[in-house]
Design a binder for these strands. Structure first.
Length: 419
DNA sequence: TCTGGGGTCCTAGGACCC
DNA sequence: TCTGGGGTCCTAGGACCC
C-alpha cells in the first residue's frame, strides 16, 4: 500500500521574511502581490486582525486595526531559495520528495515504518531548525487524502500541525464534517454543481455513484472521488516534469495610453520570457500576446490576444520582434491599458533544433544570448537589453516595500554582529 | 490614485485526411 | 428508411491550483 505525506510551510512567504528578521516573530506580517496590489500571504496574527487573502493594500493599510502590520512586497528570489533549502532538508529524511508548489512537497511515506507521527514530528523540527520554516504535515493512502490531511492540520489547532488520515474510520469522521469544497481540485464551479445535487460534505461525495460522478465532473472528478475513497490514482514523481509554457504578464504601475510605452512594456515581457526559456534550456515554437483595460475602474472594456507559431527560438531579439508585431495587431488607440503579457508555448529542449533556420544564425544567437545572460546575472537584470525595451519604463511595476534578497545576492546578505 | 502572476489539465469542436 | 464514418491534430476556453 502506498503512503503519501504532504508538508507545507505555514504562511510561507511571511515565514521566509521572518527567517531573516527575528523582530517580526510575534508581529502580524503580510506579503503583497506583484505591484503591491493585494495581500497574498498572511501570518496567523495578520489573519486574526481580519486581513483577508486578496485584500487590496491601499484599502487594508488605512484601517485603524492594521496599524501594527508589517507589509512586504513579494520577493520571489528569496522564497524560491528558501524552498530549495526546505527540499534539501526533506531529502535527508525520506527517499523521495516531489515538489508540488513553492511551499508544498509530497513525500513518499511508503514502507517508512509504523511510527509516522514520530517521523513527521522529526521532519517538522528539522525543517524548522535548518530552514527556519514552520510547517504542517498530513498523510494518508493517496495524494488527495494527504493534501486534505495537511489542510486539516492547518485549520485545527488541536491537531498541533500533524494529521494522520491512514485509518478509514478516522477518515469517515472527518469526511462527514468537512465541506466538499475543501478538497484539492474541487473549485467554486464544482461546489455549486454538487450543491445543486444535494452534495455538501466529502461523505456525501464519496457515496455518489462513480458513473454519475464521471458524467457530471468528467474523469477529473472521477479521479478525485477514487482518491478520496483510498484508491491511489496520482503517483508520486520525483523527476521534475518538463514545463509546458512560459509567461511574462504584468499589471502596469500606471495605466498605459501611448503606443511607445506599450511597445516597450511588451518588449520587456518578451525579454523576460526569453530569459526564462534560456535558463531552462528551452526553445518556444508558439507565442501569444494579450492586452486589456482595467476591469475595475469603469473604463471601456477591451481585451484581445493574438498568437502565432514561430521558428523555435529563445533569442530575445527574435522574440521581441515577433511580440511587437503581434501587439501591433491588438493595439487600439484611445484606451487606457491596464495589463499585458507574453505567453510562450510549444516548448522543446535545446539540442532538438538540429534544423537550422535561414532567418537566424543559431550559433551566433547562442553566443550573443549567453553573453547577455552573463552580464545581466553579474550586473543586474536589464543591464543589457534590446533598445526596444526603452529607458523611461513608466509602466514599471511598483515594489515599494521590498526586503533584501538575503540568500541570493551577496550584497544583500544578512550582517552578523557580536556585541 | 489604488484590485497578482504563473502554471496545469481536460474537453469540445473545427480542419483535415483516407 | 437510408444520402459515410472514423481517426488525428490543433486550438480555444473552462476550471482549477498555489
Amino acid at each position: 500500500m502506498p503512503l503519501f505525506a504532504l508538508i507545507d510551510g505555514n504562511s510561507f512567504y511571511c515565514s521566509c521574511q521572518r527567517a531573516f528578521e527575528p523582530r517580526l516573530r510575534r508581529l502580524p506580517v503580510v506579503v503583497l502581490s506583484n505591484n503591491d496590489g493585494c495581500a497574498i500571504a498572511r501570518t496567523r496574527e495578520a489573519k486574526l486582525i481580519g486581513i483577508k487573502m486578496g485584500d487590496p493594500w491601499h484599502m487594508a493599510r488605512k484601517r485603524p486595526e492594521t496599524k501594527p502590520v508589517v507589509w512586504y512586497s513579494s520577493n520571489y528570489a528569496l522564497y524560491a531559495d528558501m524552498s530549495r533549502r526546505m527540499f534539501q532538508v526533506l531529502s535527508g529524511h525520506v527517499p523521495r520528495v516531489e515538489p508540488y508548489s513553492i511551499d508544498e512537497m509530497f513525500l513518499d511515506y511508503t514502507g517508512m515504518g509504523a511510527d509516522l507521527h514520530g517521523l513527521s514530528r522529526r521532519i517538522q523540527q528539522a525543517v524548522l531548525h535548518e530552514a527556519k520554516i514552520p510547517t504542517c504535515v498530513g498523510w494518508g493512502p493517496t495524494k488527495t487524502i494527504a493534501k486534505l490531511a495537511n489542510g486539516l492540520a492547518k485549520d485545527h489547532a488541536e491537531l498541533d500541525g500533524l494529521c494522520d488520515l491512514t485509518d478509514p474510520a478516522v477518515r469517515a469522521v472527518w469526511y462527514a464534517r468537512t465541506e466538499i469544497g475543501d478538497v484539492w481540485g474541487i473549485g467554486r464551479q464544482t461546489v455549486e454543481k454538487l450543491r445543486r445535487e444535494g452534495i455538501q460534505t466529502i461523505a456525501d461525495f464519496i457515496a455518489m455513484d462513480p458513473r454519475k460522478t464521471r458524467d457530471m465532473l468528467t474523469v477529473v472528478g472521477g479521479r478525485i472521488q477514487a482518491e478520496l475513497r483510498g484508491q491511489s490514482c496520482l503517483p508520486l514523481s520525483d523527476v521534475a516534469s518538463a514545463r509546458k509554457s512560459v509567461a511574462a504578464t504584468r499589471t502596469f504601475g500606471r495605466l498605459v495610453m501611448e503606443w511607445s510605452d506599450m511597445r516597450e512594456a511588451v518588449a520587456h515581457y518578451a525579454s523576460r520570457a526569453a530569459e526564462k526559456l534560456r535558463s531552462d534550456g528551452l526553445y518556444a515554437g508558439h507565442m501569444s500576446v494579450f492586452l486589456q483595460t482595467n476591469p475595475h475602474n469603469g473604463d471601456p472594456w477591451y481585451s484581445n490576444q493574438h498568437s502565432s507559431a514561430i521558428e523555435p527560438t529563445n533569442d530575445t531579439r527574435a522574440l521581441v520582434k515577433r511580440a511587437t508585431r503581434l501587439l501591433a495587431k491588438l493595439w487600439r488607440p484611445g484606451h487606457r491599458y491596464f495589463k499585458a503579457g507574453v505567453i510562450l508555448t510549444d516548448l522543446s529542449p535545446a539540442g532538438m533544433q538540429a534544423v537550422m533556420f535561414a532567418s537566424q544564425n543559431p550559433e551566433m544567437s547562442e553566443r550573443v544570448m549567453a553573453a547577455m545572460d552573463i552580464i545581466n546575472a553579474r550586473y543586474g537584470r536589464g543591464m543589457v537589453r534590446t533598445a526596444s525595451t526603452g529607458i523611461q519604463q513608466t509602466w514599471e511595476t511598483r515594489q515599494a516595500l521590498l526586503s533584501a534578497r538575503y540568500t541570493t545576492r551577496l550584497s544583500e546578505i544578512v550582517g552578523v554582529r557580536s556585541w
